[in-house]
Write a protein that binds this DNA or RNA. Structure first.
Lengths: 200, 200
DNA sequence: TGTACATCAGTGAACGCGCGTTCACTGATGTAC
DNA sequence: TGTACATCAGTGAACGCGCGTTCACTGATGTAC
């Protein structure tokens, strides 16, 4: 009986508690937000004793770090996929990257908040590598065909990043429901600045 | 002896514990962040028993609501002051509003995070009125002289708000220290989109 | 000017709660011989 | 194919901690007469 799980055709059918803990943490983050995300709740959701997570994560900050890594990878994947699906037009490509960024944030508000807004002491940075760097590089790639209007070298990236980042978090925070506004949920394409192709 | 405080020339010299509690809460928010902001710590900082705050706030969410109200008023004041100091040039006026927004956020990272990123359950909305509305109206006023490049009625406000909001939170989060970047802390003026005056 | 009373902010002890962490333990799995 | 041993993930009880909240209380202040 006890070997039943190993009799399955898939070798991965043996219980992977670590993966289950991460899935449960993502679910709690999504449903209840960061403040409800504790080791004990994660363990309870998986159906395991509250002491079990200690065998997989040094502590809550390490678990949160792992979640951030997953989040940045997934965000990067979405941005890359959007870019790839957009074809060759540079403007369409950048637009797709921006829309992917915002869409990911809107679909994963708890996770994106953890990734960007959680205090340094709460998240063990060592638990995820350069995952954030990858997303930034993709954004930079999307911006590359366009000349910055004026001065600084990476001012266009800064502009675009600020724009979509702010848009995403204002959207998540429900700020576009502001009673003074007409447009409840603007389109990204209506909000991007004019972009001129690099001439050289 | 017990009347000594009332013998002072200033009538406000009598202890105002409620105000002290709010000041202490702001200080904790600034120094340690939202996660460390509890009623007991606030009381301890003021030097009062931990049961005292209950006489002034129904609970932590009401205290946080009061802080948000103060924050939005202060943000609005800064935006208005910046605009007033900028003179008559519409572009300079809008730039000043934007710079005030970002500067306030950078100077008060804990408070601005509470105002925009804290969950609805944590902050009692009833504890502050339309303070957020005022800031939005000022931003709208700064945008008014400019024609939206294309379509939607409030797309320019959305664009500017997203841009400065994202810029502010990326700055607070230390994202401009990203190793892939050249410019560590860009200027707002280098990052604003081109603005064309409304013709009609 | 006095006296009786109501109000109200602050005290300090006590409560139950959920949290992270530690501990000795158990039982399954893998390995050396 | 066996036997002895090491490893390791999970258990459940226990710990101390900080938290919000409640409670009877005290003492100062304000008010009615």
């Amino acid at each position: 009986m006890t070997v039943s799980s190993r009799d399955q055709t898939s070798p991965g059918a043996a219980r992977d508690v670590r993966a289950e803990l991460i899935d449960a943490a993502l679910a709690i983050l999504h449903e209840d937000g960061l403040e409800k995300l504790t080791l004990r709740r994660v363990a309870a959701r998986v159906g395991v004793s509250h002491a079990a997570p200690a065998h997989h994560f040094r502590g809550l900050p390490h678990l949160l770090g792992a979640l951030c890594g997953i989040g940045f990878e997934a965000l990067s994947d979405e941005m890359e996929a959007g870019m790839a699906a957009a074809g060759d037009n540079p403007r369409e490509r950048l637009l797709a990257v921006c829309e992917a960024y915002v869409a990911y944030a809107e679909a994963n508000p708890g996770l994106i908040s953890l990734m960007f807004n959680a205090g340094k002491e709460r998240v063990e940075k060592a638990a995820f590598g350069g995952s954030g760097q990858r997303a930034y590089t993709i954004l930079r790639e999307g911006c590359a065909p366009f000349a910055p209007a004026g001065a600084e070298a990476d001012s266009l990236e800064t502009q675009i990043w600020s724009l979509i980042h702010g848009f995403a978090f204002l959207s998540i925070g429900g700020r576009f429901d502001n009673p003074g506004r007409i447009t409840k949920r603007p389109e990204i394409r209506d909000v991007l600045p004019p972009l001129t192709l690099r001439t050289s």
